[in-house]
Design a protein around this nucleic acid. Structure first.
Length: 548
RNA sequence: GUGCCCGUAGCUCAAUCGGAUAGAGCAACAGCCUUCUAAGCUGUAGGUUACUGGUUCGAUUCCAGUCGGGCAUACCA
Protein backbone atom coordinates (compact mmCIF):
# COMPACT_ATOMS: atom_id res chain seq x y z
CA UNK A 1 0.00 0.00 0.00
CA UNK A 2 2.75 2.41 0.93
CA UNK A 3 4.43 1.59 -2.36
CA UNK A 4 1.31 2.53 -4.24
CA UNK A 5 0.97 5.81 -2.35
CA UNK A 6 4.62 6.62 -2.88
CA UNK A 7 4.19 6.04 -6.57
CA UNK A 8 1.14 8.24 -7.09
CA UNK A 9 2.60 11.03 -4.99
CA UNK A 10 5.87 10.70 -6.85
CA UNK A 11 4.03 11.06 -10.16
CA UNK A 12 2.36 14.21 -8.90
CA UNK A 13 5.77 15.56 -7.88
CA UNK A 14 7.07 14.99 -11.38
CA UNK A 15 4.12 16.74 -12.95
CA UNK A 16 4.58 19.75 -10.72
CA UNK A 17 8.35 19.78 -11.00
CA UNK A 18 8.73 19.65 -7.24
CA UNK A 19 12.18 18.94 -5.82
CA UNK A 20 12.86 15.35 -4.87
CA UNK A 21 11.96 14.58 -1.28
CA UNK A 22 11.81 11.28 0.47
CA UNK A 23 8.15 10.93 1.24
CA UNK A 24 7.06 9.36 4.46
CA UNK A 25 3.63 7.98 5.27
CA UNK A 26 2.19 7.80 8.74
CA UNK A 27 -0.72 5.86 10.04
CA UNK A 28 -2.77 8.43 11.88
CA UNK A 29 -4.02 7.40 15.28
CA UNK A 30 -7.38 8.96 14.64
CA UNK A 31 -9.82 7.47 12.20
CA UNK A 32 -10.94 10.84 10.92
CA UNK A 33 -7.45 11.47 9.58
CA UNK A 34 -7.71 8.54 7.23
CA UNK A 35 -5.72 5.35 6.86
CA UNK A 36 -2.48 6.95 5.75
CA UNK A 37 -1.20 10.48 5.85
CA UNK A 38 1.84 12.33 4.67
CA UNK A 39 3.45 15.57 5.70
CA UNK A 40 5.08 16.02 2.29
CA UNK A 41 3.49 19.41 1.76
CA UNK A 42 4.88 20.71 5.05
CA UNK A 43 8.36 19.56 4.20
CA UNK A 44 8.16 21.31 0.83
CA UNK A 45 6.91 24.56 2.29
CA UNK A 46 10.39 25.88 2.99
CA UNK A 47 11.89 24.97 -0.37
CA UNK A 48 8.99 26.35 -2.35
CA UNK A 49 8.42 29.35 -0.10
CA UNK A 50 4.72 28.67 -0.24
CA UNK A 51 2.19 27.80 2.46
CA UNK A 52 1.84 24.06 3.07
CA UNK A 53 -1.90 23.95 2.54
CA UNK A 54 -1.53 25.51 -0.88
CA UNK A 55 1.09 22.95 -1.85
CA UNK A 56 -1.13 20.19 -0.58
CA UNK A 57 -3.95 21.45 -2.77
CA UNK A 58 -1.75 21.45 -5.82
CA UNK A 59 -0.57 17.96 -5.06
CA UNK A 60 -4.07 16.60 -4.66
CA UNK A 61 -5.15 18.36 -7.81
CA UNK A 62 -2.48 16.51 -9.75
CA UNK A 63 -2.99 13.18 -8.05
CA UNK A 64 -4.14 10.27 -10.19
CA UNK A 65 -5.34 7.22 -8.34
CA UNK A 66 -7.56 4.18 -8.56
CA UNK A 67 -10.94 4.94 -7.01
CA UNK A 68 -11.34 1.31 -6.04
CA UNK A 69 -8.31 1.59 -3.80
CA UNK A 70 -8.51 5.12 -2.45
CA UNK A 71 -11.91 6.44 -1.65
CA UNK A 72 -10.99 9.92 -0.53
CA UNK A 73 -8.04 12.30 -0.20
CA UNK A 74 -8.23 15.25 2.15
CA UNK A 75 -6.17 18.13 3.42
CA UNK A 76 -6.24 18.68 7.15
CA UNK A 77 -4.53 20.58 9.89
CA UNK A 78 -1.42 22.47 8.99
CA UNK A 79 -1.12 20.71 5.65
CA UNK A 80 -1.38 16.98 6.17
CA UNK A 81 -2.64 15.02 3.20
CA UNK A 82 -4.85 12.19 4.40
CA UNK A 83 -5.69 9.13 2.34
CA UNK A 84 -8.79 7.06 2.96
CA UNK A 85 -8.55 3.53 1.67
CA UNK A 86 -11.73 1.99 0.32
CA UNK A 87 -13.31 -0.70 2.47
CA UNK A 88 -13.46 -3.02 -0.52
CA UNK A 89 -9.72 -2.94 -0.80
CA UNK A 90 -9.31 -4.51 2.62
CA UNK A 91 -11.61 -7.36 1.75
CA UNK A 92 -9.11 -8.50 -0.84
CA UNK A 93 -6.86 -9.44 2.02
CA UNK A 94 -9.01 -12.49 2.81
CA UNK A 95 -8.00 -14.64 -0.16
CA UNK A 96 -4.46 -13.33 0.16
CA UNK A 97 -4.11 -14.56 3.73
CA UNK A 98 -5.82 -17.86 3.01
CA UNK A 99 -3.45 -18.48 0.11
CA UNK A 100 -0.36 -17.34 1.97
CA UNK A 101 -1.10 -19.51 4.99
CA UNK A 102 1.96 -20.01 7.19
CA UNK A 103 3.92 -17.71 4.92
CA UNK A 104 1.50 -14.81 4.93
CA UNK A 105 3.45 -11.75 6.06
CA UNK A 106 6.83 -12.98 4.94
CA UNK A 107 8.86 -10.46 3.07
CA UNK A 108 11.30 -11.10 0.27
CA UNK A 109 13.17 -7.84 0.71
CA UNK A 110 16.24 -9.70 1.96
CA UNK A 111 15.75 -12.82 -0.07
CA UNK A 112 19.04 -14.58 -0.87
CA UNK A 113 20.80 -12.61 1.85
CA UNK A 114 22.50 -14.34 4.74
CA UNK A 115 22.61 -13.24 8.34
CA UNK A 116 24.53 -14.45 11.36
CA UNK A 117 23.02 -13.85 14.75
CA UNK A 118 25.21 -14.41 17.76
CA UNK A 119 23.63 -14.39 21.15
CA UNK A 120 23.52 -15.93 24.61
CA UNK A 121 27.25 -16.70 24.36
CA UNK A 122 27.46 -17.22 28.11
CA UNK A 123 30.58 -19.06 29.13
CA UNK A 124 29.80 -22.55 30.45
CA UNK A 125 30.73 -21.74 34.04
CA UNK A 126 27.26 -22.53 35.34
CA UNK A 127 23.56 -22.40 34.66
CA UNK A 128 21.99 -19.48 32.86
CA UNK A 129 20.47 -17.14 35.41
CA UNK A 130 17.16 -15.39 35.00
CA UNK A 131 18.81 -12.24 33.71
CA UNK A 132 20.13 -14.17 30.72
CA UNK A 133 16.50 -14.75 29.82
CA UNK A 134 16.19 -11.37 28.27
CA UNK A 135 18.92 -12.07 25.79
CA UNK A 136 17.87 -15.65 25.14
CA UNK A 137 14.30 -14.65 24.34
CA UNK A 138 15.19 -11.51 22.46
CA UNK A 139 17.60 -13.35 20.21
CA UNK A 140 15.22 -16.17 19.57
CA UNK A 141 12.54 -13.76 18.37
CA UNK A 142 14.99 -11.68 16.38
CA UNK A 143 16.35 -14.72 14.54
CA UNK A 144 12.81 -15.67 13.54
CA UNK A 145 12.03 -12.11 12.59
CA UNK A 146 15.06 -11.84 10.32
CA UNK A 147 13.99 -15.05 8.60
CA UNK A 148 10.59 -13.51 8.01
CA UNK A 149 12.20 -10.61 6.19
CA UNK A 150 13.94 -13.04 3.86
CA UNK A 151 17.32 -13.68 5.46
CA UNK A 152 18.85 -17.11 5.72
CA UNK A 153 19.86 -17.00 9.38
CA UNK A 154 22.71 -18.80 11.13
CA UNK A 155 22.19 -18.94 14.89
CA UNK A 156 25.49 -18.86 16.67
CA UNK A 157 26.81 -19.21 20.23
CA UNK A 158 30.34 -18.12 21.04
CA UNK A 159 32.12 -18.98 24.23
CA UNK A 160 35.50 -18.20 25.73
CA UNK A 161 36.74 -21.58 26.84
CA UNK A 162 40.32 -20.32 27.02
CA UNK A 163 39.80 -17.35 29.26
CA UNK A 164 40.05 -16.56 32.91
CA UNK A 165 36.44 -17.32 33.79
CA UNK A 166 36.75 -20.94 32.73
CA UNK A 167 40.03 -21.21 34.56
CA UNK A 168 38.42 -19.97 37.77
CA UNK A 169 35.65 -22.48 37.25
CA UNK A 170 38.24 -25.26 36.90
CA UNK A 171 39.96 -24.13 40.09
CA UNK A 172 36.61 -24.16 41.87
CA UNK A 173 35.91 -27.71 40.76
CA UNK A 174 39.37 -28.79 41.80
CA UNK A 175 38.91 -27.26 45.25
CA UNK A 176 35.59 -29.07 45.73
CA UNK A 177 37.23 -32.26 44.56
CA UNK A 178 40.03 -31.85 47.07
CA UNK A 179 37.57 -31.07 49.84
CA UNK A 180 36.25 -34.59 49.47
CA UNK A 181 39.54 -35.71 50.99
CA UNK A 182 40.54 -32.60 52.93
CA UNK A 183 37.50 -30.63 54.12
CA UNK A 184 39.79 -27.72 54.97
CA UNK A 185 41.18 -27.42 51.45
CA UNK A 186 40.95 -23.72 50.55
CA UNK A 187 38.28 -22.60 48.09
CA UNK A 188 39.32 -19.82 45.68
CA UNK A 189 38.18 -16.43 46.88
CA UNK A 190 36.53 -15.51 43.59
CA UNK A 191 35.43 -19.07 42.89
CA UNK A 192 31.99 -20.27 41.79
CA UNK A 193 30.20 -21.15 44.99
CA UNK A 194 27.17 -22.97 43.60
CA UNK A 195 26.44 -26.56 44.60
CA UNK A 196 26.69 -27.70 41.00
CA UNK A 197 30.46 -27.34 41.31
CA UNK A 198 30.34 -30.00 44.02
CA UNK A 199 28.28 -32.20 41.71
CA UNK A 200 30.92 -31.92 39.05
CA UNK A 201 33.59 -32.79 41.58
CA UNK A 202 31.61 -35.86 42.63
CA UNK A 203 31.32 -36.99 39.02
CA UNK A 204 35.09 -36.76 38.64
CA UNK A 205 35.58 -38.53 41.95
CA UNK A 206 33.26 -41.34 40.90
CA UNK A 207 35.38 -41.95 37.81
CA UNK A 208 38.88 -41.22 38.98
CA UNK A 209 38.72 -41.65 42.75
CA UNK A 210 41.68 -39.88 44.32
CA UNK A 211 44.01 -40.22 41.32
CA UNK A 212 43.85 -36.49 40.54
CA UNK A 213 44.95 -35.12 43.87
CA UNK A 214 48.17 -33.83 42.37
CA UNK A 215 47.27 -33.08 38.75
CA UNK A 216 49.73 -31.66 36.25
CA UNK A 217 47.10 -29.17 35.21
CA UNK A 218 43.40 -28.58 35.67
CA UNK A 219 42.33 -29.54 32.14
CA UNK A 220 40.29 -32.50 33.30
CA UNK A 221 38.41 -30.32 35.78
CA UNK A 222 37.78 -27.66 33.19
CA UNK A 223 36.58 -30.12 30.61
CA UNK A 224 34.30 -31.91 33.05
CA UNK A 225 32.84 -28.58 34.13
CA UNK A 226 32.40 -27.38 30.59
CA UNK A 227 30.59 -30.54 29.53
CA UNK A 228 28.41 -30.59 32.59
CA UNK A 229 27.47 -26.93 32.40
CA UNK A 230 26.87 -26.94 28.68
CA UNK A 231 24.51 -29.82 29.06
CA UNK A 232 22.50 -27.77 31.55
CA UNK A 233 22.62 -24.63 29.44
CA UNK A 234 21.47 -26.44 26.32
CA UNK A 235 18.72 -28.04 28.32
CA UNK A 236 17.48 -24.61 29.42
CA UNK A 237 17.70 -23.28 25.88
CA UNK A 238 15.83 -26.29 24.67
CA UNK A 239 13.00 -25.61 27.10
CA UNK A 240 12.58 -22.24 25.45
CA UNK A 241 12.84 -23.72 21.99
CA UNK A 242 16.20 -22.13 21.22
CA UNK A 243 18.53 -24.08 19.03
CA UNK A 244 21.86 -22.74 17.83
CA UNK A 245 23.36 -23.93 14.58
CA UNK A 246 26.95 -23.19 15.52
CA UNK A 247 28.78 -23.35 18.83
CA UNK A 248 31.98 -21.48 18.23
CA UNK A 249 34.70 -21.90 20.84
CA UNK A 250 37.56 -19.56 21.42
CA UNK A 251 40.10 -22.39 21.50
CA UNK A 252 39.60 -23.05 17.81
CA UNK A 253 40.98 -19.60 17.07
CA UNK A 254 44.22 -20.55 18.80
CA UNK A 255 44.37 -23.92 17.13
CA UNK A 256 43.95 -22.61 13.61
CA UNK A 257 46.42 -19.78 14.20
CA UNK A 258 43.95 -16.92 13.79
CA UNK A 259 44.95 -15.38 17.10
CA UNK A 260 48.62 -15.17 16.16
CA UNK A 261 47.78 -14.01 12.67
CA UNK A 262 45.67 -11.20 14.10
CA UNK A 263 48.47 -10.15 16.46
CA UNK A 264 50.91 -10.05 13.56
CA UNK A 265 48.48 -8.01 11.52
CA UNK A 266 48.15 -5.46 14.30
CA UNK A 267 51.90 -5.30 14.73
CA UNK A 268 52.70 -4.99 11.04
CA UNK A 269 50.27 -2.11 10.70
CA UNK A 270 51.93 -0.34 13.61
CA UNK A 271 48.75 -0.25 15.64
CA UNK A 272 50.29 -1.62 18.81
CA UNK A 273 53.18 -1.07 21.21
CA UNK A 274 54.71 -2.95 24.12
CA UNK A 275 54.77 -1.61 27.62
CA UNK A 276 55.32 -3.29 30.98
CA UNK A 277 55.50 -6.59 29.16
CA UNK A 278 52.00 -6.27 27.69
CA UNK A 279 50.90 -5.56 24.13
CA UNK A 280 48.71 -2.47 23.89
CA UNK A 281 46.31 -1.48 21.14
CA UNK A 282 46.41 2.21 20.34
CA UNK A 283 42.98 3.71 20.76
CA UNK A 284 42.12 6.92 19.00
CA UNK A 285 40.99 9.61 21.44
CA UNK A 286 38.95 11.22 18.67
CA UNK A 287 36.76 8.13 18.53
CA UNK A 288 35.85 8.63 22.15
CA UNK A 289 38.33 6.25 23.75
CA UNK A 290 40.00 7.46 26.90
CA UNK A 291 43.00 5.21 26.92
CA UNK A 292 44.77 2.44 25.08
CA UNK A 293 43.77 -1.14 25.78
CA UNK A 294 45.78 -4.26 26.46
CA UNK A 295 45.29 -7.06 23.96
CA UNK A 296 48.01 -9.40 25.23
CA UNK A 297 48.66 -9.54 28.96
CA UNK A 298 52.16 -9.58 30.40
CA UNK A 299 51.49 -13.24 31.19
CA UNK A 300 51.36 -13.86 27.45
CA UNK A 301 47.63 -14.58 27.43
CA UNK A 302 45.42 -12.42 25.22
CA UNK A 303 42.66 -10.40 26.85
CA UNK A 304 39.13 -11.14 25.65
CA UNK A 305 39.41 -8.36 23.06
CA UNK A 306 41.84 -10.14 20.84
CA UNK A 307 39.93 -13.40 20.37
CA UNK A 308 36.73 -11.36 20.03
CA UNK A 309 38.33 -9.41 17.20
CA UNK A 310 39.66 -12.57 15.57
CA UNK A 311 36.25 -14.16 15.95
CA UNK A 312 34.52 -11.28 14.22
CA UNK A 313 37.09 -11.32 11.45
CA UNK A 314 36.20 -14.97 11.00
CA UNK A 315 32.53 -14.09 10.73
CA UNK A 316 33.26 -11.33 8.25
CA UNK A 317 35.31 -13.72 6.14
CA UNK A 318 32.48 -16.21 6.15
CA UNK A 319 30.72 -13.66 3.95
CA UNK A 320 27.47 -12.86 5.73
CA UNK A 321 25.44 -9.93 4.45
CA UNK A 322 24.46 -9.10 8.00
CA UNK A 323 26.19 -9.88 11.29
CA UNK A 324 24.18 -9.23 14.43
CA UNK A 325 25.50 -9.44 17.97
CA UNK A 326 23.32 -9.18 21.03
CA UNK A 327 25.04 -8.03 24.21
CA UNK A 328 23.99 -6.84 27.61
CA UNK A 329 24.70 -3.23 28.48
CA UNK A 330 27.69 -4.37 30.54
CA UNK A 331 29.39 -4.88 27.18
CA UNK A 332 28.32 -1.47 25.98
CA UNK A 333 31.84 -0.12 25.87
CA UNK A 334 33.77 -3.20 24.98
CA UNK A 335 32.00 -3.98 21.72
CA UNK A 336 33.12 -0.56 20.53
CA UNK A 337 36.71 -1.53 21.22
CA UNK A 338 36.24 -4.72 19.25
CA UNK A 339 34.69 -2.89 16.31
CA UNK A 340 37.44 -0.32 16.48
CA UNK A 341 40.04 -3.07 16.31
CA UNK A 342 38.40 -4.62 13.28
CA UNK A 343 38.08 -1.28 11.55
CA UNK A 344 41.66 -0.28 12.23
CA UNK A 345 42.80 -3.46 10.50
CA UNK A 346 41.02 -2.17 7.44
CA UNK A 347 37.89 -4.32 7.47
CA UNK A 348 34.42 -3.04 6.76
CA UNK A 349 32.23 -3.09 9.85
CA UNK A 350 29.11 -1.74 8.18
CA UNK A 351 27.52 -5.18 8.03
CA UNK A 352 27.86 -5.59 11.79
CA UNK A 353 24.88 -4.55 13.86
CA UNK A 354 25.23 -4.63 17.62
CA UNK A 355 22.14 -4.72 19.77
CA UNK A 356 22.59 -3.71 23.37
CA UNK A 357 19.90 -4.57 25.84
CA UNK A 358 19.67 -3.08 29.30
CA UNK A 359 19.88 -5.10 32.49
CA UNK A 360 17.01 -6.74 34.28
CA UNK A 361 16.35 -6.18 37.94
CA UNK A 362 14.40 -8.98 39.59
CA UNK A 363 12.20 -8.35 42.55
CA UNK A 364 10.19 -10.46 44.89
CA UNK A 365 7.91 -8.09 46.69
CA UNK A 366 10.12 -5.32 48.01
CA UNK A 367 13.36 -7.23 47.80
CA UNK A 368 15.46 -6.94 44.70
CA UNK A 369 18.27 -9.36 44.29
CA UNK A 370 21.37 -9.73 42.25
CA UNK A 371 22.02 -12.20 39.52
CA UNK A 372 25.36 -13.64 40.32
CA UNK A 373 26.70 -16.98 39.32
CA UNK A 374 29.37 -16.66 41.95
CA UNK A 375 27.01 -16.45 44.86
CA UNK A 376 25.52 -19.72 45.99
CA UNK A 377 21.96 -18.44 46.00
CA UNK A 378 20.73 -17.63 42.55
CA UNK A 379 17.52 -17.35 40.65
CA UNK A 380 18.07 -19.31 37.49
CA UNK A 381 16.37 -19.06 34.16
CA UNK A 382 15.08 -22.58 34.79
CA UNK A 383 13.46 -21.32 38.00
CA UNK A 384 11.78 -18.48 36.17
CA UNK A 385 10.43 -20.84 33.52
CA UNK A 386 9.14 -23.17 36.22
CA UNK A 387 7.47 -20.29 37.99
CA UNK A 388 5.72 -18.54 35.12
CA UNK A 389 5.99 -20.90 32.15
CA UNK A 390 7.98 -20.85 28.93
CA UNK A 391 5.45 -18.81 26.95
CA UNK A 392 5.15 -16.10 29.58
CA UNK A 393 8.92 -15.97 29.95
CA UNK A 394 9.40 -15.57 26.24
CA UNK A 395 6.61 -13.04 26.01
CA UNK A 396 7.69 -10.88 28.94
CA UNK A 397 11.23 -10.51 27.74
CA UNK A 398 10.29 -9.76 24.15
CA UNK A 399 7.45 -7.46 25.06
CA UNK A 400 9.79 -4.64 25.98
CA UNK A 401 12.14 -2.74 23.76
CA UNK A 402 15.69 -3.93 24.35
CA UNK A 403 16.98 -0.54 25.32
CA UNK A 404 14.75 -0.01 28.29
CA UNK A 405 15.65 -0.91 31.85
CA UNK A 406 13.44 -3.67 33.03
CA UNK A 407 12.07 -4.33 36.48
CA UNK A 408 10.82 -7.86 36.69
CA UNK A 409 8.65 -8.56 39.69
CA UNK A 410 8.58 -12.30 40.01
CA UNK A 411 5.87 -12.36 42.67
CA UNK A 412 3.67 -10.32 40.40
CA UNK A 413 4.39 -12.53 37.41
CA UNK A 414 3.48 -15.59 39.46
CA UNK A 415 0.41 -14.11 41.08
CA UNK A 416 -1.01 -12.65 37.94
CA UNK A 417 0.01 -15.36 35.61
CA UNK A 418 -3.60 -15.79 34.57
CA UNK A 419 -3.87 -12.12 33.73
CA UNK A 420 -0.57 -12.09 31.96
CA UNK A 421 -0.79 -10.16 28.70
CA UNK A 422 0.30 -13.25 26.83
CA UNK A 423 -3.06 -14.78 27.60
CA UNK A 424 -4.87 -11.91 26.00
CA UNK A 425 -3.31 -12.87 22.69
CA UNK A 426 -3.48 -16.61 23.09
CA UNK A 427 -7.06 -16.42 24.27
CA UNK A 428 -8.05 -14.77 21.01
CA UNK A 429 -6.45 -17.67 19.20
CA UNK A 430 -8.13 -20.28 21.40
CA UNK A 431 -11.46 -18.55 20.95
CA UNK A 432 -11.19 -18.82 17.20
CA UNK A 433 -10.33 -22.48 17.51
CA UNK A 434 -13.48 -22.92 19.58
CA UNK A 435 -15.58 -21.34 16.87
CA UNK A 436 -13.99 -23.55 14.25
CA UNK A 437 -14.72 -26.65 16.33
CA UNK A 438 -18.31 -25.51 16.49
CA UNK A 439 -18.30 -24.94 12.74
CA UNK A 440 -17.06 -28.49 12.22
CA UNK A 441 -20.29 -29.69 13.81
CA UNK A 442 -22.78 -27.21 12.45
CA UNK A 443 -21.26 -25.99 9.22
CA UNK A 444 -19.73 -29.10 7.71
CA UNK A 445 -17.77 -28.34 4.62
CA UNK A 446 -16.84 -24.81 5.58
CA UNK A 447 -13.25 -25.62 4.79
CA UNK A 448 -14.14 -25.95 1.13
CA UNK A 449 -15.65 -22.50 0.88
CA UNK A 450 -14.34 -20.76 -2.18
CA UNK A 451 -13.85 -17.13 -1.31
CA UNK A 452 -14.42 -16.18 -4.96
CA UNK A 453 -18.04 -17.22 -4.66
CA UNK A 454 -18.87 -15.07 -1.69
CA UNK A 455 -20.51 -11.71 -1.64
CA UNK A 456 -18.06 -9.51 0.18
CA UNK A 457 -20.57 -6.66 0.22
CA UNK A 458 -22.12 -8.40 3.21
CA UNK A 459 -19.10 -7.38 5.25
CA UNK A 460 -19.87 -3.87 6.29
CA UNK A 461 -19.61 -3.28 10.02
CA UNK A 462 -16.80 -1.23 11.46
CA UNK A 463 -15.58 -4.04 13.67
CA UNK A 464 -15.25 -6.30 10.63
CA UNK A 465 -13.56 -3.78 8.37
CA UNK A 466 -11.21 -2.60 11.11
CA UNK A 467 -10.13 -6.15 11.81
CA UNK A 468 -9.39 -6.71 8.13
CA UNK A 469 -7.44 -3.45 8.02
CA UNK A 470 -5.23 -4.59 10.87
CA UNK A 471 -4.72 -8.01 9.29
CA UNK A 472 -3.63 -6.40 6.05
CA UNK A 473 -0.87 -4.55 7.90
CA UNK A 474 0.94 -7.69 8.99
CA UNK A 475 3.51 -7.76 6.20
CA UNK A 476 4.44 -4.13 6.70
CA UNK A 477 4.70 -4.64 10.43
CA UNK A 478 7.01 -7.63 10.03
CA UNK A 479 9.28 -5.75 7.68
CA UNK A 480 9.30 -2.67 9.85
CA UNK A 481 10.09 -4.63 13.00
CA UNK A 482 12.74 -6.64 11.18
CA UNK A 483 14.53 -3.68 9.70
CA UNK A 484 14.76 -2.00 13.09
CA UNK A 485 15.64 -5.30 14.83
CA UNK A 486 12.80 -4.80 17.28
CA UNK A 487 10.69 -7.89 17.85
CA UNK A 488 8.60 -6.13 20.48
CA UNK A 489 6.86 -4.28 17.67
CA UNK A 490 5.32 -7.57 16.61
CA UNK A 491 3.76 -7.91 20.05
CA UNK A 492 2.41 -4.39 19.96
CA UNK A 493 0.89 -5.26 16.63
CA UNK A 494 -0.55 -8.62 17.72
CA UNK A 495 -2.14 -6.85 20.64
CA UNK A 496 -4.13 -4.74 18.24
CA UNK A 497 -5.07 -7.84 16.26
CA UNK A 498 -6.39 -9.53 19.39
CA UNK A 499 -8.14 -6.38 20.51
CA UNK A 500 -9.91 -6.00 17.19
CA UNK A 501 -10.81 -9.66 17.10
CA UNK A 502 -12.32 -9.63 20.57
CA UNK A 503 -14.40 -6.63 19.56
CA UNK A 504 -15.44 -8.30 16.33
CA UNK A 505 -16.40 -11.41 18.25
CA UNK A 506 -18.42 -9.43 20.72
CA UNK A 507 -20.32 -7.48 18.08
CA UNK A 508 -20.92 -10.22 15.54
CA UNK A 509 -22.30 -13.69 15.87
CA UNK A 510 -20.08 -15.77 13.58
CA UNK A 511 -22.18 -18.88 13.14
CA UNK A 512 -25.76 -18.11 12.31
CA UNK A 513 -27.73 -21.04 10.86
CA UNK A 514 -30.25 -18.55 9.47
CA UNK A 515 -27.65 -16.78 7.42
CA UNK A 516 -25.27 -19.22 5.82
CA UNK A 517 -23.54 -16.81 3.47
CA UNK A 518 -22.70 -14.26 6.13
CA UNK A 519 -21.58 -17.00 8.49
CA UNK A 520 -19.22 -18.32 5.86
CA UNK A 521 -17.73 -14.87 5.35
CA UNK A 522 -17.19 -14.42 9.06
CA UNK A 523 -15.68 -17.86 9.30
CA UNK A 524 -13.17 -16.75 6.71
CA UNK A 525 -12.39 -13.66 8.76
CA UNK A 526 -11.79 -15.96 11.74
CA UNK A 527 -9.51 -18.17 9.69
CA UNK A 528 -7.55 -15.14 8.56
CA UNK A 529 -7.19 -13.82 12.09
CA UNK A 530 -6.12 -17.23 13.31
CA UNK A 531 -3.49 -17.36 10.61
CA UNK A 532 -2.05 -13.94 11.39
CA UNK A 533 -1.97 -14.67 15.12
CA UNK A 534 -0.29 -18.00 14.47
CA UNK A 535 2.34 -16.46 12.22
CA UNK A 536 2.97 -13.72 14.75
CA UNK A 537 3.26 -16.23 17.59
CA UNK A 538 5.75 -18.18 15.52
CA UNK A 539 7.90 -15.08 15.12
CA UNK A 540 7.99 -14.13 18.78
CA UNK A 541 8.30 -17.77 19.72
CA UNK A 542 5.25 -18.63 21.78
CA UNK A 543 2.79 -21.47 21.33
CA UNK A 544 -0.60 -21.31 19.67
CA UNK A 545 -2.97 -23.05 22.10
CA UNK A 546 -6.17 -24.53 20.63
CA UNK A 547 -7.85 -24.50 24.01
CA UNK A 548 -7.36 -22.57 27.21
C1' G B 1 35.25 12.20 38.12
C1' U B 2 34.52 10.55 32.79
C1' G B 3 31.78 7.69 28.82
C1' C B 4 27.25 4.97 27.20
C1' C B 5 21.97 3.94 28.25
C1' C B 6 17.45 5.28 30.65
C1' G B 7 13.55 8.71 33.16
C1' U B 8 6.16 8.78 29.84
C1' A B 9 -0.69 7.26 34.16
C1' G B 10 -0.27 4.18 41.01
C1' C B 11 2.81 -0.41 38.44
C1' U B 12 5.07 -2.65 33.80
C1' C B 13 5.63 -0.66 29.07
C1' A B 14 4.09 1.65 23.69
C1' A B 15 4.15 5.89 20.62
C1' U B 16 6.76 4.33 12.61
C1' C B 17 13.34 9.77 9.47
C1' G B 18 10.03 15.53 14.71
C1' G B 19 3.37 15.41 13.43
C1' A B 20 -2.76 16.30 14.54
C1' U B 21 -6.45 15.37 21.22
C1' A B 22 0.70 11.07 24.25
C1' G B 23 -1.66 5.10 23.89
C1' A B 24 -2.16 -0.34 25.90
C1' G B 25 -2.18 -4.04 29.86
C1' C B 26 -2.30 -4.55 35.24
C1' A B 27 -4.35 -2.13 39.62
C1' A B 28 -9.20 1.24 40.84
C1' C B 29 -14.44 2.40 39.88
C1' A B 30 -19.43 1.48 37.08
C1' G B 31 -21.98 -1.79 33.74
C1' C B 32 -22.47 -6.58 30.29
C1' C B 33 -22.98 -14.00 30.44
C1' U B 34 -30.61 -18.77 29.26
C1' U B 35 -26.67 -17.32 22.39
C1' C B 36 -19.75 -19.64 19.03
C1' U B 37 -14.64 -19.82 25.63
C1' A B 38 -16.41 -13.49 30.61
C1' A B 39 -8.49 -15.39 30.38
C1' G B 40 -13.67 -11.29 27.01
C1' C B 41 -16.53 -6.59 25.92
C1' U B 42 -18.38 -1.33 27.09
C1' G B 43 -17.65 2.99 29.98
C1' U B 44 -15.17 6.24 34.02
C1' A B 45 -10.92 7.94 36.29
C1' G B 46 -5.76 8.40 35.99
C1' G B 47 -0.30 12.92 32.60
C1' U B 48 3.08 20.01 33.20
C1' U B 49 6.25 12.97 28.97
C1' A B 50 11.95 14.14 35.73
C1' C B 51 13.25 19.68 35.66
C1' U B 52 15.01 24.29 33.00
C1' G B 53 16.17 26.59 28.62
C1' G B 54 17.00 26.33 23.15
C1' U B 55 16.04 24.94 17.77
C1' U B 56 10.64 25.54 14.45
C1' C B 57 4.77 25.90 11.65
C1' G B 58 4.95 21.75 15.45
C1' A B 59 9.27 18.46 20.51
C1' U B 60 8.03 12.42 24.49
C1' U B 61 11.36 12.52 20.04
C1' C B 62 16.70 16.92 18.22
C1' C B 63 20.51 20.28 21.16
C1' A B 64 22.55 22.33 26.02
C1' G B 65 22.35 22.22 31.25
C1' U B 66 20.36 20.30 36.11
C1' C B 67 18.44 16.22 39.08
C1' G B 68 17.67 10.87 39.64
C1' G B 69 18.70 5.52 38.27
C1' G B 70 21.53 1.46 35.53
C1' C B 71 26.06 -0.14 33.18
C1' A B 72 31.07 0.64 32.19
C1' U B 73 35.53 2.87 33.37
C1' A B 74 40.82 -4.10 34.93
C1' C B 75 46.58 -7.19 32.06
C1' C B 76 37.49 -10.66 34.05
C1' A B 77 34.44 -11.76 29.88
Amino acid sequence: MKNYLTKIIGDAFLKLNYPDKSIHFDKPKEEKFGDYSTNAAMLLAKDLKSPPRKIAEELIHNLEYDKDVISKVEIAGAGFINFFISGNYFKKIIPEILTGKNNYGRSEVFKNKTANLEWVSANPTGLLHAGHGRQVCLGKALANLLEWTGYKVTREYYYNDAGNQMSVMAKSVYARYMQIFEPEFPFPEEGYAGDYIKDIAQIIYAERKDSLRNPENLDIFKEAGENYNFKLIKNTLNTLGVKHDVFFNETSLYENGEINRTIEEFKSKGLTYEEEGALWLKMNKDDGFQKDKVIVKSSGEPTYRLPDIAYHLDKIKRGYDLIVDIFGSDHGDTYKEVLYGIKSLGYDVSSIKVIIHQMVTFKTGNESFKMSKRSDKSYYLDDLINDIGADATQFFFVMRGANTHLDFDIELAKEHSEKNPVYYLQYAYARICGILRNADENFPGYKDINSDDLNFQLINSDSEINLLKILSDFGEEVLNAGMSYEPHKIITYLNSVAENFHRFYHNNRVLDPENKELSELRLLICLCTKQVLKNGFDIIGISSPERM
